[in-house]
């Protein structure tokens, strides 16, 4: 369970260009949710996801994932938390260019110290769900945009994170590929019970998700 309490985040604080990117955000995301955060461009979706994912610090308020209060962690501990508990899918440039599909999918598990065989097994499992099992030895630059995003999702879920954060995963995809990706993520949510949180203003993503959080100028407008 993810809980945010009165979270504030500023950029360029105390300068002319100060932006109040998150303005008193409080919300709860239960395990197993399939939720989208939406809102106009610049409303703070990415900032919110990065805060929840311990990628960025916040200025005040409290964020807890299960029992861990991530707003209290230092840089090292946040890196460890990202590695252990959180899966990320970014809008683009998700893959490590020197590793092939299978190695990209297994990368996090390898860092976590899983046994070689366990990693192999899990790579095949998630690659199957995301229909990438036929391209396991391909390099990222040999893949289409949709395939790259599917590999990114596969990597994010391979290590069974507590939470999968996807920041506009469909933004660079055509509608057919977007639908395909969303369907696969939905099945992951159902089969593996992965908690998935999107940031998106893609209609199809909003349609598929079970809950919608609307942000406006950094504060929650609708939950």
């Amino acid at each position: 369970m993810v809980r945010l309490e009165h979270v504030h985040k500023y950029f360029n604080k105390d300068t002319q260009r100060e932006v109040h990117a998150l303005d008193d955000v409080s919300l709860v995301i239960e395990d197993g949710e399939f939720t989208v955060i939406t809102g106009t461009s610049g409303c703070g979706k990415t900032t919110l996801l990065n805060a929840i994912g311990a990628l960025d610090s916040v200025d005040s308020g409290r964020i807890t994932i299960d029992e861990t209060e991530i707003t209290k962690l230092d840089e090292r501990e946040r890196a460890a938390l990202r590695l252990q508990d959180i899966g990320f899918v970014f809008q683009a440039y998700n893959l490590i260019p020197v590793l092939n599909v299978a190695e990209n999918i297994g990368f996090i598990m390898k860092l976590q110290g899983y046994h070689h065989e366990a990693i192999e097994k899990r790579i095949r499992e998630v690659a199957m769900i995301l229909e990438m099992d036929h391209r396991l030895s391909a390099m990222p630059n040999e893949l289409s945009g949709g395939q790259q995003q599917r590999v990114a999702v596969a990597r994010a879920v391979a290590a069974k994170p507590k939470l999968l954060l996807a920041d506009e995963p469909t933004a660079n995809l055509d509608s057919k590929n977007s639908q395909r990706l969303m369907q696969m993520m939905k099945s992951l949510n159902e089969i593996e019970k992965t908690t998935i949180l999107f940031a998106s203003h893609d209609d199809y993503v909003m349609e598929m998700s079970r809950r919608e959080i609307i942000l406006s100028d950094g504060h929650v407008e609708k939950m």
Partner: peptide, 12 residues
């Protein structure tokens, strides 16, 4: 690429 590695949880 190095930013991605850090986002994924590698320490600096």
């Amino acid at each position: 690429e190095l930013g991605l590695l850090r986002a994924l949880g590698l320490r600096s």
